[in-house]
Nucleic acid binder design. Sequence first.
DNA 1: CTGAATCCGCTCGGATACTG
DNA 2: CAGTATCCGAGCGGATTCAG
Lengths: 135, 135
Amino acid sequence: MNKELKEKIAEFKSYRIDKPPLEIIEHYKKELQAIQDTLEIVSGRWKMQIISLLCNGEFRYSELEKGLPKITPRMLSKELRDLEQNELVIRKVYDTIPVKVTYKLADYGYTLVPLIIELTNWGMEHRKYIMKRKS
Amino acid sequence: MNKELKEKIAEFKSYRIDKPPLEIIEHYKKELQAIQDTLEIVSGRWKMQIISLLCNGEFRYSELEKGLPKITPRMLSKELRDLEQNELVIRKVYDTIPVKVTYKLADYGYTLVPLIIELTNWGMEHRKYIMKRKS
DNA sequence: CTGAATCCGCTCGGATACTG
DNA sequence: CAGTATCCGAGCGGATTCAG
């Protein structure tokens, strides 16, 4: 554990409520509800990864399939439909032959970017942490 | 959508890679892997909520049960065990009668705080967004 | 090319009862 | 008080096939 991280942790600890547990629980209901709400929309194996890709522009269906090597078409189309219904993703159909369909983030979808960044960062750091622990 | 949010989105868009999709995909493999790694550890309905509570101090088992109104003992003990194995949570047993057990975040657990904060914030904002959309 | 349809196993997570 | 044991249903997500 490096020094910078220790400082960060100390800072976090200084923010915390520090009351008796039962008061914290009372004070914390809304936070927990918010976490549940978020998870309800972006949980599952694929949604975050899809959004993460779409952060960088517009993708066709087949491009997304390439970008998410182990996803099946069933899951990809289901997840995209879910995301579209929640107004996070915009689907656009081109009337060509053969058809071309593109997906991109809606403006509202970009509000998830900070979350995606944290998810990514933590995963990267965690990998380092595991490596160090093994050696 | 307020002005501040629009500015944020514009900023995010300026960060993005903006290359042809296939190049982005190649460049993005590590990021997607990192997201998967993170989800592997903190996915599920309860883990994030538990960590969020533990950010604010030490809790007894029964206090956690109160704080997470719909969790069953089976899930609570399973999730706590998982978190302990990943070195995110520290379990401490007091040799009293009856026994007392407390849980608190390990230092490594505090590295998840930024992620928790984003999860919470987004859930709160999303609630407002839904309300506004309905009216 | 972009999916929809069908089938199916497996794991997540809930309900209930019980123990040191 | 702090869990464990057992059972069970729902749904997530994979495999495969087919269609416009």
